[in-house]
Design a protein around this nucleic acid. Structure first.
Length: 177
DNA sequence: CCCTGATTCGC
DNA sequence: GCGAATCAGG
């Protein structure tokens, strides 16, 4: 790949258009595209002639805050994935090789407070999008912890997601001597 | 302080 | 055309 993805290809422009029309904020889109800042996104949006998108149930500025969804305890509303096909798509992290996976699951289980897990409806750009569980099931959740600004994951999951596949385990052990 | 989009202007 | 810096605001 000669270009590191930091160029406006047709695909990226299409995604940009779709996300912008869907009401996502520039920074959300930037984080989703990767390798671009929110300024770049805004600049491109204006150059494309898209500004002020649909005036649909939008307050004034800012992204649509997560809505609180009330559901009856006896009849939990399943979250249908197909119903939100044009909303935020969670980037599925690369699945590490078996050795890494053991470590990953281990740490994940320990470090994540269940109380912070959120559904896609409550997911915000500033929240960790680490997918948990089967996306086809209603129980599917995201980590939801505070994400690093500009990254889709919290510090914990960013570590896991972006870990170089090289010797980090040995490094850790050797470092504590 | 967190965030939003809008504009300018050097590249 | 591009986007960082800046501006103006919630």
């Amino acid at each position: 790949m000669t270009d590191a993805g930091a160029t406006w290809t047709d695909e990226r422009v299409e995604l940009l258009k779709r996300l912008w029309t869907d009401g996502l904020s520039a920074s959300q889109i930037a984080a989703e595209l990767g390798n671009v800042t929110r300024n770049a996104v805004i600049g491109k949006v204006h150059r494309l002639g898209l500004s002020g998108r649909a005036k649909d149930a939008k307050p004034t500025t800012a992204a649509p805050r997560a809505r609180k969804v009330t559901r009856a305890p006896s009849a939990p509303t399943p979250i249908a994935p197909q119903a939100h096909s044009n909303v935020v798509l969670a980037p599925i992290p690369l699945q590490p090789a078996r050795e890494e996976r053991e470590v990953m699951v281990e740490e994940e289980d320990v470090a994540i407070p269940m109380s912070e897990r959120v559904t896609i409806m409550d997911l915000r750009e500033s929240m960790c999008r680490w997918p948990m569980g089967d996306p086809t099931k209603p129980e599917f959740r995201f980590c939801g912890a505070r994400s690093i600004t500009g990254l889709p994951y919290c510090t914990h999951h960013a570590r896991i997601a972006y870990q170089p596949v090289t010797d980090r385990k040995r490094e850790r052990k050797l470092a504590r001597a």
